[in-house]
Design a protein around this nucleic acid. Structure first.
Lengths: 240, 240
DNA sequence: CGCTGGATTGACTCGGATCAAGTCGAGTGG
DNA sequence: CCACTCGACTTGATCCGAGTCAATCCAGCG
């Protein structure tokens, strides 16, 4: 299987063959992880950087009242926070959603790689900036978009991100996210997510069924969502 | 006036005298900025790093339908994204709220400082991680907290952050945020913000009046908000 | 001293939550 | 091969938190 982590970073910054090899070596011994396994929990002392090579995961928080808020989705190619090792403890959890292949890169090794390979460092920084932009987009969605816009917006985001790492087989994308999970990420109830998905299906914009997202009318979906892909930063600055 | 930026970074990581001097020099020529001025706009090509030495600012996005979502508050000592210069364009705006004193550090100068002074680099990375944690807390608030909890939570956050940089004169904090601004940050209407503030006032937990936040009963407020300060990461990892 | 932008309050409406039944499909075991 | 089960999805009926609309109120200020 190709290494989507390297693919993703190459999309941000050209990497030398040596850099590619170094990254390949660093992620060459991934572990298989079962669904619903927490990679790391709130309160844990963060250590290694996790790289998702296959499968899906999510960041989430549990509130005092027992409800859950999903904070981000991690798809193949994504990795968790870079400098997280500087902090004393995690402020959220990361859980695997599907069977997954996850490489762990020790903090020291990661630091060395980034010191010696500036291209990798730059690509990792950009990846982090994109993650931050994504969080801002989520805040915006939760605060100021209607539930239909919110669902449509998330689907646009996931579709584009997935396409960027070659996960889309036009026009379908395997999206292993239950409606309960979607509800916990969109600040809605599962019941309402279901109704909104029905509205979107009937509108002819998209369908999400049996774990598969089908974009029927991309223009309509983008319009419905008020989606602007600028926060994913695919048009990158040319000059170093 | 003391330099709250340096103070804040020292709270994250001990800085050598040379590092302190370097930072002081880099931020020694701040500009006065009038309220409602945009420091940088969505679509702009990011350049220098902004450091807020005095006054308040906020990050925000404008949606297609004309509504606004505030994404974060910047108070004295805060600075905007580190590696932002790697991106081709901004995905949000930053606007000054009160009369402010803002230093701009050129990207090149910042890179050099961080290369030569690892303590500064470390402190800056931690500051960025805290900002990310704050965004996650905001997502959680918007998604899964009631409006009362949300308002109370924001007040706890602002109070603690302000206290960390010496902005609180017990038990009061000057908070120059209009109810309209609060509404745009909490995903509510100004009318509802007003009603919630009234509830909080009558409950005896806090008052927010004439630009001044008064924590009346901290324990009650924290309980009401379901607030956990772990995401502000004041208990930092000891070992480097 | 009246103007203006924020704060406050009331009356009414509505989007989305809640509560409560089903239905469907993939396994599992007899 | 079929009944049984369990988890996820659907749908309907009802309720309530928060939005909307519309007046004031109030403090600072030119």
């Amino acid at each position: 299987m190709e290494n989507r982590f390297i693919e993703k970073l190459q999309g941000f910054c050209a990497l030398s063959p040596v850099e590619v090899l170094t990254l390949a070596e660093a992620t060459s011994r991934p572990k298989s992880i079962a669904p619903k396994t927490d990679l790391i929990r709130e309160g844990d002392r963060p250590g290694a950087v996790f790289v998702i090579l296959d499968g899906w995961a999510c960041r989430y928080k549990i509130l005092p009242n027992g409800t859950r808020q999903v904070l981000a989705y991690l798809m193949p190619g994504d990795c968790c926070d870079l400098h997280i090792g500087l902090l004393a403890e995690m402020d959220h959890n990361i859980q695997v959603i599907t069977p997954a292949l996850v490489a762990t890169v020790e903090r020291k090794a990661m630091d060395e790689i980034m010191d010696q390979h500036r291209g990798v460092a730059k690509a990792m920084y950009i990846a982090q900036l994109v993650d931050e932009g994504t969080m801002r987009a989520w805040i915006t969605s939760m605060g100021r978009r209607t539930s239909t816009e919110r669902v449509a917006h998330l689907m646009c985001e996931l579709y584009l991100r997935a396409r960027n790492v070659g996960l889309v087989f036009e026009p379908e994308l395997k999206l292993p996210l239950s409606q309960l999970l979607l509800a916990d990420s969109l600040g809605m109830t599962p019941v309402h997510v279901n109704r909104v998905l029905k509205v979107l299906r009937l509108s002819g914009a998209m369908t999400l069924q049996r774990g598969s997202l089908h974009i029927v009318d991309a223009a309509k979906l983008v319009h419905l969502a008020g989606f602007d892909d600028n926060y994913l930063h695919r048009r990158l600055r040319k000059a170093a």
